[in-house]
Design a protein around this nucleic acid. Structure first.
Length: 287
DNA sequence: AACATCTCCTGAAAGC
DNA sequence: TGCTTTCAGGAGATGT
């Protein structure tokens, strides 16, 4: 499920392939994936002839600039794939949007569960695309320092797991990386944010940056569906310490990884290393 | 404000 | 073996 590192990987693998290319034909094969389905015809017309001039990531959104005119914005949600092919492309079952470029090459948006969305917006109207306007700070932004993180956290009352998943609190984290961050920080997912000591907040902040950077270096996590912009799987699944590892031995102690529903999501944690509401008893180890 | 629950959707896995 | 049920989850909507 694409989170920040996966979206970043899609962007970096895709952009060199499509930058500067002009869209020749647009095939909307399932109009529900278009942000405003009733405008699917306008969507196609608006995209024809446009050139992809650049792209960037914000939270879990992929934004491609169409010169100065507008942006093409994707949210991959659970099972979305966005990739480039330079072969003659025969649309597969869940290929909902297919863009053919002048001079060859195809950009394909596939999404088995159809939770993903694609938006076409004019410059200045980007905020209408998905949750873009409501997104919190970028966790890897150098200007988002520990002080800013700590201050934001201390204003909140909820549990840490739900807070880190909340895109308006911080943008780009999903279930996998929140569990990994909390494991490295040695914080139980149900710990209330208010009860966190400064040292615990610092561990979360540091782990967050480390794990996101490591996952980007590993080109993302593939459990089943995720592929990068060239259709390749990621490598980071092998390096996950807790996510999806219920019943396996904790890599740092003799206990076993447990699974519990927190904030409506499966949460994996070590009950020994991540004790609820005991953030800093002096037993924290360097990881 | 915080949190639970439902919704969307498909296919894999588990249950019988 | 084969059919049926459950489950996974990002995020928005809704209810408490």
């Amino acid at each position: 499920m694409p989170e920040l590192p996966e979206v970043e990987t899609v962007l970096s693998s895709l952009l060199p392939k499509i930058k500067g290319k002009k869209i020749k034909t647009v095939r909307v094969r399932h109009k529900d994936v278009v942000g405003w389905p009733e405008t699917a015809i306008k969507f196609s017309q608006g995209l024809c002839g446009k050139k992809i001039s650049g792209g960037f990531r914000r939270g879990k959104l992929l934004l491609f600039t169409l010169d100065e005119e507008g942006k093409l914005i994707f949210h991959l949600r659970m099972t979305g794939r966005l990739y480039y092919s330079d072969k003659i492309y025969q649309p597969r079952k869940h290929a909902h949007l297919v863009l053919d470029f002048s001079g060859g090459g195809t950009l394909i948006f596939e999404d088995t569960r159809r939770f993903g969305r694609v938006y076409l917006v004019k410059t200045g109207e980007e905020k209408y695309a998905g949750n873009l306007e409501k997104l919190g700070p970028e966790p890897l932004d150098p200007e988002f320092d520990l002080k800013a993180f700590s201050q934001a956290l201390k204003q909140k009352k909820g549990r840490i797991k739900g807070l880190l998943l909340n895109q308006s609190f911080i943008a780009g984290l999903g279930n996998i990386y929140v569990d990994e961050i909390l494991f490295r920080s040695q914080i139980h997912p149900e710990t209330s944010a208010q009860n966190l000591e400064d040292r615990a907040i610092c561990r979360i902040y540091t782990s967050m940056k480390e794990i996101l950077n490591e996952a980007i270096a590993g080109r993302g996590t593939t459990f089943r569906d995720y592929r990068d912009g060239e259709g390749r799987a990621g490598d980071f699944q092998d390096l996950l310490k807790v996510y999806g590892r219920e019943g396996e031995k904790c890599p740092y102690c003799s206990d076993y990884i447990e699974r519990k529903k927190v904030a409506g999501r499966s949460s994996f944690f070590c009950p020994c290393c991540q004790k609820d509401d005991v953030n800093d008893s002096g037993s924290v180890r360097k990881r």
